[in-house]
Write a protein that binds this DNA or RNA. Sequence first.
DNA 1: GACCAGGTAGCAA
DNA 2: TTGCTACATGGT
Length: 293
Amino acid sequence: METGQFPIDDLPGGLDLYRTLESGQTYLWHRDDGEMYSGTPSPESWYATVVDGDVIRVRTRNGILEWESTTDADPIVRRLVRLEDDLEAIVAAAPDDPLVADAYDAHRGMRLVEDPPFGCLISFICSAQMRVSRIQSMVSALAREYGDEIAFEGRTYHAFPTPAQLASATEAELRELGLGYRAPYVVRTAELVADGGAHPAEARDLEYEAAREYLTQFVGVGDKVADCVLLFSLGFDEAVPLDTWIKSAIEEYYPDCDRGSYAETSRAIRDRLGGEYAGYAQTYVFHHLRTGD
DNA sequence: GACCAGGTAGCAA
DNA sequence: TTGCTACATGGT
């Protein structure tokens, strides 16, 4: 086992793992001590994920971010929870807006995540018309049924399935796991990636709106899911997914940003939320409104 | 038993 | 292009 740590005090803006990993941005982590999204974790509890076959566990205790892994996870942890982000500067540069300010104040230390592209893509295909706790259980089921098992420190972890592993699933099997009408979307998208027809990571090299358009070629991916993948996996911090919560926020707080179409409303709200880091503001507002605190 | 959840595909006009 | 509507499922 390899281990390491980061002093959180050295991170501008800090780090709140609970808010970062249980705010509905990522479904590729789980808490070792029980179910996600059901009560707050104890300070002792670990969050675990599998990246490229390596188990990575993290927790924060006494002002220290600790990790344990099957490999040298230092650079991986930095990337997954975006430790390099100057969160303090991002908050300081946020638009002068009461809702955004309240959201940032209420959830100090929440960072964006950077999920692996394929897992992120499938997660958000599953997310359509679903509550976050159920998305988590659907993604966990996919890992349990189709992903590699990896033993680490007396526990068994499940990697998110590769495109080929997921493409081997049938629609009927995935319906059995409770994916409902998303089942064929997941299978067809996995097949497309497994066959080499396209890969979500290829969107990284494109300009923002072209990248969003690129991602919609995957089955089950519309503008909103595409924005989630751009924001939570591909480094497009300006992406603002227009989900039900943000739409109601637009209706209540930014009615002039409602331009009818997704593309035009997206431009208006991105501009309103500060442009470059609009997605950061969106993630805080989403979490703030959804949790009510 | 409605109503809702980080929406999208398919089709008509 | 834009505007419907069907689509699964579990929790409140």
